[in-house]
Amino acid sequence: MKRNISTMIFLAGLTLMGACGEPGDGTSAGTESGGIVEISVVGSTTVQPLAELLSESYEAIDPNVLVTVSGGGSSVGVKSAAEQTADIGMASREIKESEIQDCPEIVVHTIARDGIAIVANPDIDVDEITMEQAREIFSGEITDWSEVGGTAGMITVASREEGSGTRSAFEDLVMNDALISEMAILQPSNGAIRTTVATTPGCIAFLSFGYLDSNTKPMAVDGALPTAENVSAGSYPVVRPLNMVTYGEPTGAVAEWLDFIVGEDGQAIVAAEGYIPI
């Protein structure tokens, strides 16, 4: 028993030491072990599903690469890249001034653009709102559908939580200095927002293009429907970049994977998932 315990403690200690020595090898290059190069990708839950698909397609081409994609959120993504706890950080918004000041070494790679659509419950008979109306609905000044030309009924606002990349992009692009109403239902993910809008009468929310489906009703904003074409044509105004962040210029497998993403095959996947290629 004594020997067992001490072996165990020794093993645990060894693992801890091995673990602490791992990160921090200068640039983002992936970690090699046993012929397989592992790329760790951490951050935005909006970019995560896209990154997962891009990793699977790339692994089919180069089986010696293993990309592990974890969530955590945009801020964690930038932080992980800056602190080199991950090879790549994902962010579904512009990188903030303060983040660049904290770590000037980070390099931003835009891999796609994403529109943020305003969606409503399918039973709502309003098809179009103006930017101004959107601001007033989400800030809680307009509370009834009749005020924007629909059948009378209470508006229920749903929103992502504070700190979400989608929310901060929406606030920058639509809300200006107005604040999203405190009465809003807050859901911690795009999927939960979609379910809430689809099932709650009178509900309105904003949603990444990648999550649009027939269960929610996309609204035209200032006359433009939220479609990839309108974004490319410049008529749909609510657009943000999807970014990958590395510490320094990437090398090795990380650079190759990022090249694949911005290349033809990668961008085809981007488009197929409903995002806008760069």
Binding site: G72, G73, S75, V76, E162
Partner: peptide
């Protein structure tokens, strides 16, 4: 009424917060 719990506040926002 909707609400948020102390536990939910931590779980929902910890990954975004700096």
């Amino acid at each position: 009424s909707r609400a948020r719990t102390l536990t939910g506040n931590i779980a929902v926002e910890i990954s975004y917060a700096t």
